[in-house]
Amino acid sequence: MTAHAMSHTLAAGSGSGWLAAFTHPYFLHAFLAGSAIALAAGLTGFFLVLRAQVFTGDALSHVAFTGALAALAGGYDLRLGLFAATVAVALLIGAIGRGGRADDVAIGSVFAWILGLGAFFLTLYTTSRSAGNGGAGVSVLFGSLFGLSAGQALTAALVAGSICAVLLLIARPLLFASVDEAVAAARGVPVRLLGLVFLVLVGACAAEATQAVGSLLLLGLLAAPAGAAARLTDRPFRGLALSAVLALAEMWAGLGLSYAVPTLPPSFGIMAAAASVYGLTFLKGAGRGRDHEKGRNGTSRPARAFSRLWQTATMPALGDTDHE
């Protein structure tokens, strides 16, 4: 952070306007990695909200902290620990729950303990490696987007790009399985496998985003754009696209804010942008009246819209499976 502030003030005289930001390598790296991570988080987050699995995302983000510090304490690359821990726990959560949806109390107990293990590794790392920097724990928890090297940024962009690609590939069946699991299973959609693949994608996304905004804050990047998109539109694919676009815009706004005001860390700028966009969508909802938005049977709006759409398209053959 201090390095960023310093280089910023040193170079302040040389550039002019907003484009000058891109002459700094640290900003360019952050922009590249941040944009890719925001897209991945926006897409994954939309499904997390639709499937009511935000708490699972929260758990995976905390697991990322322990994985990173375990790798650091053992002397390995931080990213190895991040991906190993989040993907392993994603598979575990998928295995202990039915249809890839585990019970809140079981998830909470497991991740609270894993977080305690993280505290242990943090102490191990800061006490045993005297050469190591004491700020490692803080930068894993809260991210260091402006500290990425060119290689790290490129890897981050590639990994986030492949998360997006896989998610878009399975988007249609996953949407169906998320909205109406029983009907999807009856129509031959591999519901359980899809749930598991999705959890692994969330794990990979959490590991990737930890490097950008930190393991404690990535939940905001997953939940806020998706929640805002779900409030703004009823239609599932439009919502999915909107969620990704909102995440990207919030990432850019946060980076810009942090560049303009160097005392603000980039993670804070991104969270502030994400939270205020989500807050603004509530103003829109308040104007339209509450009973309309909540719906008749309590399901979320995109879920109802999608099931209605699906029923009119394919249900005449089955007819009596109307679940409303």
């Binding site: 939940l219 905001g220 929640g227």
Partner: peptide, 16 residues
Amino acid sequence: AAGGHESAVTGTVQAF
């Protein structure tokens, strides 16, 4: 069943 929205708000509050 509307747990998704509620937890999105909760998660955003927490992260912010």
